[in-house]
């Protein structure tokens, strides 16, 4: 997966050039991003850089374009929206034709608002995509099941019935299973679209703890409606309004001394 390796080989096949490069200081960046739903421009200005091993929150009112922005970061909007501009990941624009979208999504995973485990056992939920990618080694698979469930802080609750249906878990457990499933693919970046908004406060705080532990190894971008949550867990915060990234800074600056009046209005609850 190393860029140098591919580029230094003179007779390497062309497609190797499009292999993703090294995991750099800036894990992901967008330049002049525009997203259209039909003729409707949902996002008109998105120039952001996401630092590696940090949590970045995207906040803003409903319809501000933050979810649209997040979903374009791993091309989940492919069939519904048109994306213009660049999304650079390891030296490559992920929207370029040469990028294998399926491989890219294994690098940039996503967790959704509502828990969506497969109608399979807990274990199969995690191993399924790995098996699809050709991993057959049983010990290895079991090891991954254990480590990813541990990372998602779910292992102790489910280790005795991994064969049980994932649908039998509670909402909070399902969401952590989904996180475990995403990190089992060993992505670089984890995108989360309001992962706790459908959960109770206890599950929410468990998810937050999980995310704080995960940032040791993953770059996390999270959309949230909950400003306390953004303040609690994120290193950086971007404020979106009317399809534009209005302000982007360290979280404590955004929440204590925002530079833009609009941001101040939003975080102090004057609108949104």
């Amino acid at each position: 997966m190393l860029e140098n390796e591919a580029l230094n080989t003179d007779n390497a096949p062309l497609r190797n050039i499009y292999r993703f490069g090294e995991n750099a200081e800036i894990a992901l960046s967008t330049h002049d991003l525009h997203v259209f739903y039909g003729d409707n421009e949902a996002l008109s200005e998105g120039d952001l850089e996401f630092e590696r091993y940090k949590i970045t929150s995207l906040i803003g009112a409903s319809g501000s374009g933050k979810s649209t922005f997040l979903r374009s970061l791993n091309r989940m909007n492919d069939n519904v929206a048109t994306v213009k501009g660049q999304i650079m990941y390891r030296g490559i624009d992920i929207n370029s034709k040469e990028v294998d979208v399926y491989e890219m999504r294994r690098h940039i995973g996503m967790v959704f608002q509502r828990p969506n485990p497969f109608a399979k056992s807990i274990k199969d939920n995690i191993t399924f995509a790995l098996k699809q990618r050709g991993m057959r080694d049983k010990n290895k698979l079991e090891e991954i099941v254990e480590t990813s469930l541990k990372q998602a802080a779910l292992w102790d609750q489910v280790k005795d019935d991994l064969g049980k249906s994932a649908l039998a878990l509670s909402g909070g457990q399902q969401q952590r299973l989904v996180i475990a499933r995403a990190i089992a693919m060993k992505p670089d970046i984890l995108l989360l679209d309001e992962p706790a908004s459908a959960l109770d406060p206890i599950s929410t705080s468990q998810i937050e703890d999980t995310l704080l532990e995960l940032k040791e190894k993953y770059t996390i971008v999270i959309v949230t409606h909950n400003m306390q949550q953004a303040a609690r867990i994120s290193d950086y915060t971007a404020f979106f309004h009317m399809g534009k990234a209005i302000e982007y800074d360290e979280t404590r600056k955004i929440f204590t001394r925002p530079k833009v009046k609009l941001t101040n209005d939003y975080i102090s609850g004057n609108f949104g």
Binding site: M76, F112, R114, R181
Partner: peptide, 21 residues
């Protein structure tokens, strides 16, 4: 559709998602 998105987000192709999920 959440199930389809789950498959896509794991880097599974549409066909894989349809057939196995």
């Amino acid at each position: 559709d959440l199930q389809r998105e789950a498959g896509a987000a794991l880097g599974l192709s549409k066909w894989e998602t349809v057939i196995h999920v």
